[in-house]
Measured scan of single mutants.
Amino acid sequence: MPGGGPEMDDYMETLKDEEDALWENVECNRHMLSRYINPAKLTPYLRQCKVIDEQDEDEVLNAPMLPSKINRAGRLLDILHTKGQRGYVVFLESLEFYYPELYKLVTGKEPTRRFSTIVVEEGHEGLTHFLMNEVIKLQQQMKAKDLQRCELLARLRQLEDEKKQMTLTRVELLTFQERYYKMKEERDSYNDELVKVKDDNYNLAMRYAQLSEEKNMAVMRSRDLQLEIDQLKHRLNKMEEECKLERNQSLKLKNDIENRPKKEQVLELERENEMLKTKNQELQSIIQAGKRSLPDSDKAILDILEHDRKEALEDRQELVNRIYNLQEEARQAEELRDKYLEEKEDLELKCSTLGKDCEMYKHRMNTVMLQLEEVERERDQAFHSRDEAQTQYSQCLIEKDKYRKQIRELEEKNDEMRIEMVRREACIVNLESKLRRLSKDSNNLDQSLPRNLPVTIISQDFGDASPRTNGQEADDSSTSEESPEDSKYFLPYHPPQRRMNLKGIQLQRAKS
């Protein structure tokens, strides 16, 4: 015994090295194993092979420090690593049964499904019991997946119906949107047309105001020219009257000059006056001389005659003075006559000038009245044309509004008919989907599995289990394997941990 101590140590070291070499393959693929292994699927088989106990299973599945599946799978690998070579062998058998691809990844061999460990530990009855539990578990999982698949199909059909409904609603909204954009385009076109009409109206108003201003300026210029013409006519008439007055005065002077006595007659009258003065002096001298030589009687007679002569001279002087006064009065009367005649001529000139001015103003008033009548006639014609244009424009607008209203009513009726057609199509689609759903539900009910399987069917299934373990590994792997896509769409199922009653199965096998 003492001599065998070193050999035992060498043997233990060799086993430990082999164990480390075995687990080295697992550690190399630890990331892939932790990512894809579900500990809840492996722990029943590991407990059946007595590699882990209930406490280890509870620690792996329910520990609060292991929230994710990767953490739980890593903890399970750590626990199996502590179990040595047996933990490695049982772990590979569980991978061979549940995850053939991972088994091939770790060992590089094809899975054979021999279950040597569980046969050694529990015997064939334990293997049968384990396989029966796994089959029931798989059936329950398949039923749950079928239910989930039916629910998802129903949800899918519902979503398809909602999608069709949303599509129809979208078509309806597109119809309304198209109608909205069309009405918006019509409104924009009408606004552009309105702005264009306003611009045209403004341009016409500006043109009309400009023409009116030009016409008023032309009328004012015409009036100024007419006033200048009238003033020139007035000056012409005044000059004609002055010329006529000057002509009359010149004719009067000419007549006075023609009626003036001649120079010879004046000289002859002056000679006669001198001769008479000479004779008068001679007679006076004779009379003076006679007075001195005459007697007293003759002197008395001469005195009487002288007195008579003096009286006659006085009378004559009075007559001469009277004649002079009369001549002066006649001259003054002639001057007054000439003055009055001049005033008369001036008044006649003024009267004729005023008459011509009156005629001029009368003509001017007639011209202004004619212009006013023409302006009123043009204004009435413009008003009439404007009223006709406004009436025609309003009539066109009324007809346009009428046609637009008819078009809008027809478009609304068309839209309502399209919407009604879309709604009826939606109703038809809904009815078809309901009919299809009812038909599929009836087919699913016919094809669904019963909840409680008979014992004979279970025994028959387990009677055929042994050949399947040898020759149909691919079928078992397809039913027991969970793909990543299934984990996305289906909830994980945790079967209840219970042991099955095998009395009925044993009785059935005894009868057979």
Rank of each mutant, 00 (worst) to 15 (best):
E27D: 07
A144M: 09
E54K: 10
Q55H: 10
F130T: 15
E54C: 02
N25P: 14
S94Y: 09
Q55E: 12
F97H: 09
L95M: 14
E121H: 07
F115L: 14
Q141V: 09
H31G: 03
G5Y: 13
K137S: 09
G4S: 13
E122T: 03
L33A: 03
V89E: 15
H31L: 09
K69C: 03
G126Y: 14
A144Q: 09
T14H: 15
D53A: 10
M32H: 10
E125K: 04
E27A: 02
G123L: 15
F97Y: 00
T14N: 07
W23K: 00
K137W: 12
N29C: 01
H129K: 08
P6M: 10
T117P: 15
Q139H: 14
Q140H: 09
E122W: 05
K16W: 06
E122Q: 04
E122F: 05
T14P: 10
R113L: 03
T82Y: 12
N29I: 03
K137R: 11
L77G: 05
M132V: 04
Y11M: 13
K50N: 14
L66T: 02
E54A: 09
S68E: 05
Y88N: 09
M12T: 10
A63V: 00
Y45Q: 09
Q141G: 06
K16A: 10
Y45P: 06
Q48P: 05
G4D: 11
H124W: 12
W23I: 03
V89W: 15
F130C: 15
K83C: 08
G87C: 09
G4I: 13
N38K: 02
D17R: 13
D20F: 07
N25D: 13
V90K: 15
V51G: 07
G87L: 01
K137M: 08
K83G: 07
H81T: 08
Y45F: 10
Y98K: 12
A63K: 14
S68M: 09
R113G: 15
L61G: 12
E96A: 00
P39V: 04
V106S: 00
Y45A: 08
P67R: 11
H124M: 12
I37R: 04
L42T: 07
G5H: 09
G4R: 13
E125H: 15
N29R: 03
M8P: 12
S34N: 01
W23P: 01
E122P: 15
G84Y: 02
Q139W: 14
M65I: 05
H81F: 05
L77M: 10
K69W: 04
K69L: 05
R114S: 12
L138E: 01
E96C: 06
V60S: 13
M142W: 11
S34G: 04
S94Q: 00
E18M: 07
E19M: 13
D9H: 13
V89Y: 02
V106A: 07
H129A: 11
C49P: 11
L131E: 08
I52Y: 04
T14D: 14
H81A: 06
G5E: 10
D17E: 10
